[in-house]
């Protein structure tokens, strides 16, 4: 029983979850966010259905504020392994000028991420959606089930979750309701990098340190891409040796100063880190319990 390494045990559990969903739901989809967790989830999906193809499409919710390197990777990697990718954007809000400075981050996220996600899921008629969220990322995520039930409006009710025992998942939903499934629930950040290392999984180059133009504001490194953040007087982008620890929209994802330009170096860096990976994400902090609020509304 215990002869498997803990990574192999996590892998076996995740593959079991992926297969359960495909066997029990009519129309599953994988939310593809382009980041390291999505890369790992995609590899696990390849493993789960080998030698068959991945039996569901990927959906990327594009806020249009993603890094250019992310979009390049998105348009290359899934195709290279034979996966089918759909992209959904809330163009109505985007054309109306939605951005985090004008609307504030939570409203911007609500429109470009949550609304777009719910519309994208409804448009595809998907009854189950895989997400790469991990319980160790954030305190309200630590409360998630592996199968997270969502009502007709995509909402999460954390006070009334279905019991989830052993590896027996309740997949019953009525029309319009759906399940979000988190196959990486029990993985930690270091597990993800360890697996990427062992399996040689491609990830977006933004994770690796190199000199990049950044607006340096106090401790923060703000990517100037998309020109959303207004510059303070005298501020201009300068070259800084840095990398991204997690990927999101450029205005809301800070970089960290780092020399780690390879997966082993990233792991070594993480071993020394005393700060969490979402620290540089604006959206988790703009209010106490803000992730929980977003999740209740239908965010991943």
């Amino acid at each position: 029983m215990s002869s498997l390494s803990h990574l192999q045990a996590l892998e076996a559990e995740s593959i079991h979850i992926l297969r359960e969903v495909v066997a029990e739901f009519a129309k599953p989809v994988m939310l593809y966010s382009i980041g390291k967790d999505s890369s790992v989830m995609l590899r696990l999906a390849q493993k789960a259905f080998h030698p068959g193809k991945i039996p569901f499409p990927l959906l990327h919710v594009d806020t249009t504020y993603k890094f250019g390197e992310m979009i390049e990777f998105r348009d290359w990697y899934p195709k290279s392994i034979g996966a089918e990718l759909h992209v959904h954007t809330n163009w109505e809000a985007r054309k109306a000028g939605a951005n985090p400075i004008a609307l504030g981050t939570s409203k911007c996220c609500g429109l470009l991420k949550t609304r777009a996600l719910l519309d994208g899921l409804a448009a595809g008629g998907y009854d189950a959606a895989f997400g790469g969220a991990r319980r160790d990322e954030e305190k309200s995520r630590a409360k998630e089930r592996i199968y997270s039930f969502r009502d007709q409006y995509g909402q999460w009710d954390p006070k009334n979750q279905r019991p989830e025992l052993w590896n027996l998942y309740n997949s019953r939903v009525d029309k319009g309701q759906s399940i979000r499934v988190f196959p990486l629930s029990n993985w930690t950040e270091i597990d993800v990098w360890h697996y990427i290392h062992m399996e040689n999984i491609p990830v977006v180059p933004l994770y690796f340190a190199k000199p990049r133009p950044m607006i340096v504001r106090g401790e923060s490194l703000i990517p100037p891409e998309h020109n959303v953040i207004p510059l303070l007087p005298g501020e201009k982008a300068e070259m800084v040796m840095c990398r991204m620890r997690s990927l999101g929209c450029t205005p809301c994802t800070g970089a960290i100063r780092s020399e780690a330009d390879s997966v082993p170096k990233i792991i070594e860096e993480l071993l020394r880190f005393r700060r969490s990976e979402r620290e540089n994400r604006v959206i988790d902090h703009d209010q106490e319990g803000s992730m929980e609020i977003k999740k209740r509304e239908g965010y991943f």
């Binding site: 954030e138 305190k139 309200s140 995520r141 630590a142 409360k143 954390p158 006070k159 979750q161 106490e288 319990g289 929980e292």
Partner: peptide
């Protein structure tokens, strides 16, 4: 980690 838990001072889930 839930708001209701902090408010009520108990663990719910």
């Amino acid at each position: 980690g839930l708001r209701a838990e902090r408010e009520q001072g108990i663990t719910i889930d």
